[in-house]
Simulated assay, not measured.
Amino acid sequence: MSKNGNISSSVIKRLPRYYRFLGELEKQGVERISSRELSEKMKLTASQIRQDLNCFGGFGQQGYGYQVQSLREEIGHILGVDKAYSTILIGAGNLGKAIALHINFETRGCQLTGIFDANPRLTGETVGSLAIRHTDEIEEFCKAEHPVIAVLCIPKANTQAIADKLVGLGIRSFWNFSHYDLTIDHQGIEVENVHLGDSLLTLTYRTSHLKDSEEE
């Protein structure tokens, strides 16, 4: 657990990177690693790594470094990968289906329990092990299964209204791919807005300036 309740968003965003890198080291058979060695692999400073981990109590031993498996397990616990939060996905178009099929929810603290779409022609179609349900069934499903996370892959115009409805049905966290910056005016609700196009634009900016520098 954290030593205090005010962990910065930048530290939180680095935790999944630690978890991923430590997983790769574990697969390679690495049993322990120093903050300096980990910093070289992750392109962070050793001081930054120590500061980040100290937010949660610190896990290393001076002169020994970090025990890879133990540290990964601790970070996984902090991230909640052992929680199996019931999760629903709204919008079974190409993006929604790709997320349902290719994101390993179980290793990230979630269990995908329902997929919904407003298109009646998709009702009953199977995605992985789940049959798509019509969105008219969401309320009944939430009352029975009590999901707490919703993945939104729906048209921008519908996002706020559907999110507000889902909050009333017990959803507490949103992973939002709808190209709409979702905001929820309720305490205790978490939103992660994902804009894949923004990431690509960042890359094109860097590519453009790389080209400009080469031409100078």
Rank of each mutant, 00 (worst) to 15 (best):
K143A: 10
S2W: 02
T204P: 02
G57V: 07
A144W: 03
G65M: 00
V127Y: 02
T207W: 14
E37F: 02
K41L: 15
I184A: 05
I132E: 02
Y19I: 03
L152E: 10
V191F: 03
N6I: 08
P155M: 05
Y205Q: 14
K156L: 15
Y205S: 09
I189K: 02
D82N: 14
V167R: 06
I184R: 06
N158S: 11
R32P: 00
R108N: 15
L15H: 04
E26F: 07
I171S: 09
G128W: 05
A46P: 02
A118C: 05
S10P: 00
L182H: 12
Q28T: 08
H186W: 03
V148T: 12
G65T: 00
S173E: 15
R50L: 13
F21K: 12
H195N: 15
S208R: 13
G128D: 05
H146C: 05
F177L: 13
I12L: 14
L182C: 07
A157K: 06
L89W: 10
I189D: 03
H134P: 08
L101G: 06
I138P: 03
I90Y: 05
D185V: 03
K211S: 11
L53N: 11
T202D: 13
S47M: 07
Y19M: 01
Q160M: 08
L112M: 11
F105Q: 08
G170M: 03
F174V: 02
A46H: 10
N176M: 11
N119H: 05
V191C: 03
P147Q: 03
R36C: 00
F59E: 03
Q67I: 12
I149K: 04
E140H: 06
A144I: 07
L44V: 11
D181M: 09
E192P: 01
R206W: 09
R32K: 14
E24H: 08
I78Y: 03
Q62M: 10
F174G: 01
H146G: 01
S2L: 04
G197W: 07
T113W: 06
N193Q: 14
L169H: 03
G57Y: 04
L166P: 13
R108F: 10
I189S: 04
G96T: 04
V11Q: 05
Q160S: 11
N94W: 04
G109Y: 01
T204I: 12
T45V: 03
I138H: 00
